[in-house]
Nucleic acid binder design. Sequence first.
DNA 1: TCATATCATTGGTGGTTCCAACGTTGGCTT
DNA 2: AAGCCAACGTTGGAACCACCAATGATATGA
Lengths: 158, 158
Amino acid sequence: MMTGDQAPPMRLKCAPSWLINQASAHSHRLVTERFAAADARGYHYRLLAALAEFGPASQAELGRRTGVDRSDVVAALNELAGKKLIERSPDPTDRRRNIITITPEGGHHLSHLDGVLAQIQEDLCAPLSHTEREELIRLLTRIVDHARARAPESLLGK
Amino acid sequence: MMTGDQAPPMRLKCAPSWLINQASAHSHRLVTERFAAADARGYHYRLLAALAEFGPASQAELGRRTGVDRSDVVAALNELAGKKLIERSPDPTDRRRNIITITPEGGHHLSHLDGVLAQIQEDLCAPLSHTEREELIRLLTRIVDHARARAPESLLGK
DNA sequence: TCATATCATTGGTGGTTCCAACGTTGGCTT
DNA sequence: AAGCCAACGTTGGAACCACCAATGATATGA
Protein backbone atom coordinates (compact mmCIF):
# COMPACT_ATOMS: atom_id res chain seq x y z
CA MET A 1 0.00 0.00 0.00
CA MET A 2 1.99 3.00 1.11
CA THR A 3 5.28 3.98 -0.27
CA GLY A 4 6.79 6.01 2.51
CA ASP A 5 9.62 7.92 0.97
CA GLN A 6 12.10 5.23 0.30
CA ALA A 7 15.55 6.68 0.74
CA PRO A 8 18.63 5.31 -0.96
CA PRO A 9 21.16 3.32 1.06
CA MET A 10 23.62 5.38 3.06
CA ARG A 11 26.55 3.84 1.24
CA LEU A 12 25.32 5.41 -1.95
CA LYS A 13 24.02 8.65 -0.52
CA CYS A 14 27.48 9.74 0.58
CA ALA A 15 29.52 8.39 -2.28
CA PRO A 16 30.68 11.09 -4.68
CA SER A 17 30.54 8.59 -7.51
CA TRP A 18 26.85 7.97 -6.80
CA LEU A 19 26.04 11.64 -6.46
CA ILE A 20 27.86 12.53 -9.64
CA ASN A 21 26.08 9.70 -11.36
CA GLN A 22 22.64 10.78 -10.21
CA ALA A 23 23.30 14.38 -11.07
CA SER A 24 24.53 13.30 -14.47
CA ALA A 25 21.44 11.20 -15.05
CA HIS A 26 19.24 14.16 -14.28
CA SER A 27 21.30 16.47 -16.43
CA HIS A 28 21.26 13.95 -19.25
CA ARG A 29 17.49 13.72 -18.93
CA LEU A 30 17.13 17.47 -19.28
CA VAL A 31 19.54 17.68 -22.18
CA THR A 32 18.05 14.89 -24.24
CA GLU A 33 14.44 15.87 -23.79
CA ARG A 34 14.96 19.56 -24.49
CA PHE A 35 17.43 19.02 -27.28
CA ALA A 36 15.06 16.51 -28.81
CA ALA A 37 12.50 19.29 -28.98
CA ALA A 38 15.08 21.21 -31.00
CA ASP A 39 15.86 18.16 -33.14
CA ALA A 40 19.33 17.78 -31.69
CA ARG A 41 21.32 15.69 -29.26
CA GLY A 42 24.32 16.14 -27.04
CA TYR A 43 26.95 15.25 -29.59
CA HIS A 44 25.60 17.77 -32.06
CA TYR A 45 25.98 20.63 -29.66
CA ARG A 46 29.48 19.61 -28.68
CA LEU A 47 30.62 19.49 -32.27
CA LEU A 48 28.94 22.71 -33.35
CA ALA A 49 30.35 24.49 -30.31
CA ALA A 50 33.87 23.36 -31.13
CA LEU A 51 33.49 24.45 -34.74
CA ALA A 52 32.14 27.84 -33.76
CA GLU A 53 34.87 28.51 -31.25
CA PHE A 54 37.90 27.19 -33.04
CA GLY A 55 36.89 27.39 -36.67
CA PRO A 56 37.04 24.65 -39.28
CA ALA A 57 38.75 21.51 -38.08
CA SER A 58 39.38 17.91 -38.95
CA GLN A 59 37.13 15.23 -37.54
CA ALA A 60 39.89 13.88 -35.35
CA GLU A 61 40.48 17.28 -33.82
CA LEU A 62 36.78 17.69 -33.16
CA GLY A 63 36.79 14.37 -31.41
CA ARG A 64 39.72 15.39 -29.28
CA ARG A 65 38.18 18.68 -28.31
CA THR A 66 34.75 17.39 -27.52
CA GLY A 67 35.61 14.06 -25.97
CA VAL A 68 33.68 12.18 -28.61
CA ASP A 69 35.07 9.02 -30.11
CA ARG A 70 36.32 9.34 -33.66
CA SER A 71 33.82 6.82 -34.90
CA ASP A 72 30.94 8.60 -33.22
CA VAL A 73 32.09 11.87 -34.73
CA VAL A 74 31.54 10.36 -38.15
CA ALA A 75 27.93 9.48 -37.40
CA ALA A 76 27.12 12.76 -35.71
CA LEU A 77 28.63 14.75 -38.57
CA ASN A 78 26.62 12.71 -41.05
CA GLU A 79 23.48 13.76 -39.22
CA LEU A 80 24.57 17.39 -39.07
CA ALA A 81 25.52 17.36 -42.74
CA GLY A 82 22.12 15.89 -43.58
CA LYS A 83 20.59 18.98 -42.02
CA LYS A 84 23.07 21.29 -43.76
CA LEU A 85 24.46 22.49 -40.46
CA ILE A 86 28.02 21.59 -41.36
CA GLU A 87 29.97 20.92 -44.51
CA ARG A 88 32.64 18.34 -45.19
CA SER A 89 35.39 19.12 -47.67
CA PRO A 90 38.70 17.42 -48.32
CA ASP A 91 41.81 19.10 -46.94
CA PRO A 92 44.00 20.02 -49.92
CA THR A 93 47.13 19.98 -47.79
CA ASP A 94 46.46 16.55 -46.26
CA ARG A 95 44.37 14.17 -48.25
CA ARG A 96 43.60 12.02 -45.24
CA ARG A 97 41.60 14.76 -43.63
CA ASN A 98 38.22 16.32 -44.03
CA ILE A 99 37.85 19.94 -43.14
CA ILE A 100 34.59 20.48 -41.33
CA THR A 101 32.97 23.88 -41.57
CA ILE A 102 29.93 25.16 -39.78
CA THR A 103 27.31 26.69 -42.09
CA PRO A 104 25.32 29.84 -41.33
CA GLU A 105 22.32 27.63 -40.57
CA GLY A 106 24.56 25.68 -38.23
CA GLY A 107 25.45 28.90 -36.49
CA HIS A 108 21.82 29.80 -36.02
CA HIS A 109 21.02 26.37 -34.74
CA LEU A 110 23.90 26.61 -32.30
CA SER A 111 22.65 29.95 -31.03
CA HIS A 112 19.29 28.41 -30.38
CA LEU A 113 20.83 25.48 -28.56
CA ASP A 114 22.90 27.92 -26.51
CA GLY A 115 19.67 29.31 -25.15
CA VAL A 116 18.24 25.90 -24.46
CA LEU A 117 21.40 24.86 -22.66
CA ALA A 118 21.52 28.03 -20.59
CA GLN A 119 18.05 27.25 -19.32
CA ILE A 120 19.17 23.73 -18.50
CA GLN A 121 22.06 25.04 -16.39
CA GLU A 122 19.63 27.30 -14.66
CA ASP A 123 17.25 24.49 -13.81
CA LEU A 124 20.04 22.12 -12.87
CA CYS A 125 21.65 24.58 -10.48
CA ALA A 126 18.43 26.11 -9.26
CA PRO A 127 19.01 25.19 -5.60
CA LEU A 128 22.50 26.71 -5.61
CA SER A 129 23.55 30.30 -5.07
CA HIS A 130 25.85 32.05 -7.48
CA THR A 131 28.88 31.48 -5.30
CA GLU A 132 27.97 27.86 -4.81
CA ARG A 133 27.71 27.34 -8.54
CA GLU A 134 31.16 28.73 -9.00
CA GLU A 135 32.46 26.51 -6.26
CA LEU A 136 30.86 23.49 -7.86
CA ILE A 137 32.41 24.36 -11.19
CA ARG A 138 35.78 24.75 -9.53
CA LEU A 139 35.62 21.41 -7.76
CA LEU A 140 34.36 19.48 -10.76
CA THR A 141 36.94 21.08 -13.00
CA ARG A 142 39.66 19.85 -10.69
CA ILE A 143 38.27 16.33 -10.83
CA VAL A 144 37.89 16.33 -14.59
CA ASP A 145 41.35 17.76 -15.18
CA HIS A 146 42.84 15.20 -12.88
CA ALA A 147 41.01 12.45 -14.75
CA ARG A 148 42.36 13.72 -18.05
CA ALA A 149 45.86 13.86 -16.73
CA ARG A 150 45.73 10.31 -15.47
CA ALA A 151 44.16 8.92 -18.64
CA PRO A 152 46.54 10.05 -21.32
CA GLU A 153 45.66 9.32 -24.90
CA SER A 154 43.36 6.37 -24.91
CA LEU A 155 40.24 8.14 -23.72
CA LEU A 156 39.74 11.28 -25.65
CA GLY A 157 41.89 11.43 -28.66
CA LYS A 158 41.11 8.11 -30.27
CA MET B 1 52.81 16.80 -36.83
CA MET B 2 51.89 17.04 -33.20
CA THR B 3 48.59 17.56 -31.56
CA GLY B 4 49.10 20.43 -29.17
CA ASP B 5 46.75 20.08 -26.26
CA GLN B 6 43.35 20.64 -27.74
CA ALA B 7 41.14 22.20 -25.13
CA PRO B 8 37.36 21.85 -25.12
CA PRO B 9 35.20 24.80 -26.15
CA MET B 10 34.62 27.40 -23.46
CA ARG B 11 30.87 26.92 -23.65
CA LEU B 12 31.33 23.39 -22.43
CA LYS B 13 34.18 24.00 -20.04
CA CYS B 14 32.08 26.22 -17.85
CA ALA B 15 28.76 24.44 -18.10
CA PRO B 16 27.91 22.45 -14.98
CA SER B 17 26.04 19.95 -17.12
CA TRP B 18 29.19 19.28 -19.12
CA LEU B 19 31.41 19.03 -16.06
CA ILE B 20 29.02 16.70 -14.32
CA ASN B 21 28.84 14.64 -17.44
CA GLN B 22 32.61 14.37 -17.81
CA ALA B 23 33.06 13.56 -14.17
CA SER B 24 30.36 10.94 -14.43
CA ALA B 25 31.99 9.41 -17.49
CA HIS B 26 35.24 9.10 -15.61
CA SER B 27 33.55 7.70 -12.55
CA HIS B 28 31.62 5.27 -14.69
CA ARG B 29 34.85 4.18 -16.29
CA LEU B 30 36.41 3.45 -12.92
CA VAL B 31 33.35 1.64 -11.63
CA THR B 32 32.85 -0.61 -14.61
CA GLU B 33 36.44 -1.62 -15.05
CA ARG B 34 37.09 -2.34 -11.39
CA PHE B 35 33.74 -3.95 -10.75
CA ALA B 36 34.27 -6.08 -13.84
CA ALA B 37 37.41 -7.41 -12.17
CA ALA B 38 35.14 -8.42 -9.28
CA ASP B 39 32.56 -9.91 -11.67
CA ALA B 40 29.99 -7.23 -10.88
CA ARG B 41 28.48 -4.08 -12.27
CA GLY B 42 26.94 -0.93 -10.91
CA TYR B 43 23.40 -2.23 -10.60
CA HIS B 44 24.54 -5.21 -8.57
CA TYR B 45 26.14 -3.04 -5.95
CA ARG B 46 23.17 -0.76 -5.68
CA LEU B 47 20.79 -3.64 -5.12
CA LEU B 48 23.00 -5.50 -2.68
CA ALA B 49 23.59 -2.32 -0.70
CA ALA B 50 19.87 -1.67 -0.41
CA LEU B 51 19.23 -5.22 0.71
CA ALA B 52 21.99 -5.08 3.29
CA GLU B 53 20.86 -1.80 4.75
CA PHE B 54 17.11 -2.22 4.74
CA GLY B 55 16.68 -5.96 4.82
CA PRO B 56 14.58 -8.11 2.50
CA ALA B 57 12.43 -6.13 0.13
CA SER B 58 10.25 -6.42 -2.91
CA GLN B 59 11.71 -5.74 -6.33
CA ALA B 60 9.70 -2.57 -6.72
CA GLU B 61 11.00 -1.20 -3.46
CA LEU B 62 14.55 -2.02 -4.48
CA GLY B 63 13.99 -0.14 -7.68
CA ARG B 64 12.68 2.86 -5.79
CA ARG B 65 15.57 2.93 -3.38
CA THR B 66 18.33 2.46 -5.88
CA GLY B 67 16.95 4.48 -8.77
CA VAL B 68 16.90 1.44 -11.03
CA ASP B 69 13.98 0.84 -13.33
CA ARG B 70 11.65 -2.02 -12.38
CA SER B 71 12.44 -3.88 -15.56
CA ASP B 72 16.16 -3.53 -15.05
CA VAL B 73 15.83 -4.77 -11.49
CA VAL B 74 14.50 -8.03 -12.89
CA ALA B 75 17.54 -8.58 -15.07
CA ALA B 76 20.05 -7.61 -12.41
CA LEU B 77 18.39 -9.84 -9.82
CA ASN B 78 18.44 -12.73 -12.28
CA GLU B 79 22.18 -12.30 -12.55
CA LEU B 80 22.62 -12.03 -8.81
CA ALA B 81 20.42 -15.06 -8.22
CA GLY B 82 22.47 -17.00 -10.76
CA LYS B 83 25.49 -16.37 -8.59
CA LYS B 84 23.56 -17.24 -5.41
CA LEU B 85 24.06 -13.75 -4.03
CA ILE B 86 20.35 -13.17 -3.50
CA GLU B 87 17.25 -15.31 -3.19
CA ARG B 88 13.79 -14.74 -4.58
CA SER B 89 10.79 -16.08 -2.70
CA PRO B 90 7.12 -15.28 -3.05
CA ASP B 91 5.60 -12.99 -0.46
CA PRO B 92 2.95 -15.04 1.38
CA THR B 93 1.05 -11.90 2.36
CA ASP B 94 0.95 -10.46 -1.16
CA ARG B 95 1.14 -12.85 -4.04
CA ARG B 96 2.13 -10.15 -6.49
CA ARG B 97 5.42 -9.65 -4.75
CA ASN B 98 8.72 -11.40 -4.51
CA ILE B 99 10.70 -11.03 -1.34
CA ILE B 100 14.36 -10.61 -2.13
CA THR B 101 16.87 -11.71 0.46
CA ILE B 102 20.62 -11.29 0.42
CA THR B 103 22.54 -14.52 1.03
CA PRO B 104 25.67 -14.80 3.17
CA GLU B 105 27.70 -15.05 -0.02
CA GLY B 106 25.95 -11.90 -1.19
CA GLY B 107 27.04 -10.21 2.01
CA HIS B 108 30.63 -11.20 1.47
CA HIS B 109 30.53 -10.04 -2.08
CA LEU B 110 29.10 -6.72 -0.98
CA SER B 111 31.87 -6.27 1.56
CA HIS B 112 34.40 -6.82 -1.14
CA LEU B 113 32.70 -4.34 -3.43
CA ASP B 114 32.63 -1.85 -0.56
CA GLY B 115 36.39 -1.92 -0.57
CA VAL B 116 36.60 -1.55 -4.31
CA LEU B 117 34.20 1.37 -4.25
CA ALA B 118 36.06 3.11 -1.43
CA GLN B 119 39.19 3.03 -3.53
CA ILE B 120 37.26 4.46 -6.44
CA GLN B 121 36.07 7.40 -4.33
CA GLU B 122 39.62 7.93 -3.28
CA ASP B 123 40.91 8.02 -6.84
CA LEU B 124 38.02 10.09 -8.07
CA CYS B 125 38.47 12.74 -5.39
CA ALA B 126 42.24 12.56 -5.28
CA PRO B 127 42.78 16.21 -6.22
CA LEU B 128 40.38 17.42 -3.52
CA SER B 129 41.03 18.08 0.14
CA HIS B 130 38.84 16.59 2.81
CA THR B 131 36.85 19.79 3.23
CA GLU B 132 36.47 20.14 -0.49
CA ARG B 133 35.11 16.65 -0.77
CA GLU B 134 32.51 17.42 1.85
CA GLU B 135 31.61 20.59 0.05
CA LEU B 136 31.25 18.71 -3.22
CA ILE B 137 29.01 16.16 -1.56
CA ARG B 138 26.91 18.92 -0.08
CA LEU B 139 26.45 20.73 -3.37
CA LEU B 140 25.68 17.63 -5.38
CA THR B 141 23.25 16.40 -2.76
CA ARG B 142 21.33 19.62 -3.07
CA ILE B 143 21.16 19.24 -6.83
CA VAL B 144 20.09 15.62 -6.67
CA ASP B 145 17.46 16.26 -4.02
CA HIS B 146 16.10 19.12 -6.03
CA ALA B 147 15.93 16.91 -9.08
CA ARG B 148 14.01 14.26 -7.16
CA ALA B 149 11.58 16.82 -5.83
CA ARG B 150 10.86 18.20 -9.27
CA ALA B 151 10.44 14.76 -10.85
CA PRO B 152 7.96 13.05 -8.59
CA GLU B 153 6.87 9.57 -9.52
CA SER B 154 7.84 8.96 -13.07
CA LEU B 155 11.56 8.67 -12.57
CA LEU B 156 12.28 6.40 -9.73
CA GLY B 157 9.32 4.40 -8.73
CA LYS B 158 8.35 2.90 -12.05
C1' DT C 1 62.71 3.49 -48.79
C1' DC C 2 60.49 1.54 -44.98
C1' DA C 3 58.35 1.65 -40.67
C1' DT C 4 55.27 4.14 -38.06
C1' DA C 5 51.52 6.97 -37.21
C1' DT C 6 47.36 9.43 -38.34
C1' DC C 7 43.10 9.92 -40.87
C1' DA C 8 38.05 8.74 -41.93
C1' DT C 9 35.10 5.09 -41.87
C1' DT C 10 32.65 0.67 -40.81
C1' DG C 11 30.79 -2.38 -37.64
C1' DG C 12 30.05 -4.03 -33.33
C1' DT C 13 29.69 -4.28 -27.90
C1' DG C 14 28.00 -3.06 -23.44
C1' DG C 15 25.91 -0.29 -19.89
C1' DT C 16 22.49 2.95 -18.34
C1' DT C 17 18.18 4.93 -18.48
C1' DC C 18 13.79 4.77 -19.96
C1' DC C 19 8.87 3.38 -22.02
C1' DA C 20 4.89 0.50 -23.28
C1' DA C 21 2.47 -3.48 -22.59
C1' DC C 22 0.98 -7.92 -20.44
C1' DG C 23 -1.33 -10.80 -17.03
C1' DT C 24 -1.71 -11.32 -11.99
C1' DT C 25 -3.15 -9.77 -7.68
C1' DG C 26 -4.74 -6.40 -3.87
C1' DG C 27 -7.35 -2.67 -2.23
C1' DC C 28 -11.06 0.50 -2.46
C1' DT C 29 -15.60 2.19 -3.77
C1' DT C 30 -20.09 1.73 -4.24
C1' DA D 1 -20.41 -8.52 -4.22
C1' DA D 2 -18.92 -6.43 -8.21
C1' DG D 3 -16.07 -3.46 -10.48
C1' DC D 4 -12.38 -0.33 -10.89
C1' DC D 5 -7.97 1.15 -10.16
C1' DA D 6 -3.26 0.58 -8.58
C1' DA D 7 0.71 -2.00 -7.84
C1' DC D 8 3.49 -6.04 -8.89
C1' DG D 9 6.85 -8.83 -11.85
C1' DT D 10 8.08 -9.64 -16.45
C1' DT D 11 9.07 -9.14 -21.41
C1' DG D 12 10.63 -6.53 -25.24
C1' DG D 13 12.36 -2.72 -27.11
C1' DA D 14 14.35 2.06 -27.77
C1' DA D 15 17.86 5.74 -27.34
C1' DC D 16 22.07 7.64 -26.15
C1' DC D 17 26.63 7.41 -24.73
C1' DA D 18 31.14 5.43 -24.36
C1' DC D 19 34.29 2.36 -26.35
C1' DC D 20 37.06 -1.02 -29.27
C1' DA D 21 38.98 -3.35 -33.36
C1' DA D 22 40.05 -3.24 -37.98
C1' DT D 23 40.76 -1.40 -42.69
C1' DG D 24 42.51 1.31 -46.59
C1' DA D 25 44.37 5.66 -47.65
C1' DT D 26 47.82 8.91 -46.74
C1' DA D 27 51.57 11.49 -44.40
C1' DT D 28 55.89 11.72 -41.72
C1' DG D 29 60.29 10.61 -39.97
C1' DA D 30 64.18 7.37 -39.61
